[in-house]
Nucleic acid binder design. Sequence first.
DNA 1: CTGAAAGCGCTTACAG
DNA 2: CTGAAAGCGCTTACAG
Lengths: 351, 351
Amino acid sequence: MGRMTQSPRKRPTSFDVAHLAGVSQSTVSRALAGSPSITEATRNRVMAAAAELDYLVDERAARLRRGTTSTLAVVVLRRPEDTVRSANPFYQELLYSVCEAAATRQLDTLVSLQSDDGDLSGRYVEQGQADGLVVIGSPTNVRAWEYFHELEADTSYDSPDTIGHAAYWGTPHEDMRWVRADNATGGRLAVRHLTDAGYRSIAYAGSDGNVQQQFRERHEGYLAEMADRGLAPRMIAVDQDSSREDQGRAAADAVLAAGDVDAMFVACDRMALGVLDRLSGLGTNVPGDIGVVGFDGMGAGRFSNPPLSTIEPDLAAAGKMLVDAAIDGVAQADGVRVPVRYVARSSVRSE
Amino acid sequence: MGRMTQSPRKRPTSFDVAHLAGVSQSTVSRALAGSPSITEATRNRVMAAAAELDYLVDERAARLRRGTTSTLAVVVLRRPEDTVRSANPFYQELLYSVCEAAATRQLDTLVSLQSDDGDLSGRYVEQGQADGLVVIGSPTNVRAWEYFHELEADTSYDSPDTIGHAAYWGTPHEDMRWVRADNATGGRLAVRHLTDAGYRSIAYAGSDGNVQQQFRERHEGYLAEMADRGLAPRMIAVDQDSSREDQGRAAADAVLAAGDVDAMFVACDRMALGVLDRLSGLGTNVPGDIGVVGFDGMGAGRFSNPPLSTIEPDLAAAGKMLVDAAIDGVAQADGVRVPVRYVARSSVRSE
DNA sequence: CTGAAAGCGCTTACAG
DNA sequence: CTGAAAGCGCTTACAG
């Protein structure tokens, strides 16, 4: 490693470069920033000196002076009890796609994992650390969402070069600038493909209550499409407190007990994976006896038994929408929808 | 939103707070930083004024002056052709656990996704943006690893408060400070559990070449344990160019063609998932006819057909080791190993 | 315990 | 096209 072969020395500044190149410090700054007013010859001399000294601009100073940061802050809300392996991979994927979208816009991403029971902080713009903020979470992070909701109301001044924009995934508050999957369309798509494949007695498996806004919307899409097709809706309500997988297993039991259901639209993939697990354990033929459609597009669905048909939100679009909304703002006061598509796999008969 | 209810005004500085609290700017700085030399009464007055003005320290200025950043830079190497959904989730999980480990140490994480065919940059410490650097990638990101390898050699000066530490996951260069799974132990564990379950003709499925250091180590562990138990090793070499899943499918075909193999230790979970997919498609009984063990601990393995036994690296430990190595440095010049454990699921007969 | 002042390392009017 | 100077908003010796 380099530092062993040479004695440490202080990091060079633009003054050192100026001295070596025989120009003023301001010229160094301009030359390195690509100012068009600098001669090619001068620029070359400066660049050579900078390379020679291994000089790099100190971004703290540059940003302090400039007033901007070229950075997007991303807060990921996690449940305190989650480990990397038990956490819902959906949020990890969403984080990843936000980072990708930010990179496309030449923005670095300042990521902070926060949980409902720990310190919350989202004032990165006000602290000069970012030009915008994206918050990713599930509506169950109640305290965190209240915190961010209040933050929106509190911000009483604007930074010179930014308007302190923010965008949110998973907020239960309608008056925050949210980005969400087009859940209702997803619900409709599920019913559409299931009926096209010949299923008629299609149940929705999910929570009945109003805890999860996203689930409610999926359910509404399901109801609307069922009504449009003159089919009677059925609800398989699951216990709120168990894991998604166990909720799915219980839903499968309920469907089998009912005896007259031939397909299920399940609120999310993790739950649907639980459904499949129970159904295959019991020897029920999927998709023959019962067709199953999930929601999320989880990778695990490609290898389940059988592979899971699902409604997949366009994650790349989601990342881009969040970043754009956070940096540019959006016209509408509230939210924007991420498109979804139906992914056909073998948990549904071919149409 | 707040900005609608009040006219925008410039962000307050410590001078504004000082003015309102009737003290000097230095006192504001000290009071807010928690300096013990400030009276309780003074501190309260300052805090009240700061709250009143909604003042927050500008971190750019504070860090410029202080010389540190409280930030860890994390570079994630991605393949240019990958999308969020096609990318190996292992790296997303690892990124997540690095962020968690950093948060535990009160560090923010500056995340940058970079790919072999795009701009590479890892000089965050030199630019005053971070106190340390973690790079996560696969050995296949050849150009990127060469870049970071050279960077280590180039750094010819030290920052005043940091030594420009870095730690790497996935580097093919032995002389960089790497963190890796304990692959050899993983290979041994796989063989151990397979033989304990009564399997005798255990093949290794993976690449034969030396492309993937990690795979080579897993193979070596397998070979060593097989030798210790007096069993004859078998290699099922896979085609380098197809997808992991297809490599797995081909390996399954090869095993079936051979006819005398009763178990497989597969180089990684994605490949093992391909093995399972083909085996179940062909009606082969797993674990009855053939036992399968993968490597990685991928979430999808919990729902595959049958659920996949696997060697799981401790991801939380991996994140912590990377962060610690990057910030504190480590004693040894080269690397440290992340512990692995055997996760028993139904792709192996119960012992 | 508090204040006046220097200075971190840049960018950018302002002159010439 | 280039330079001298101001200033971004802090922290921290140095005095008292």
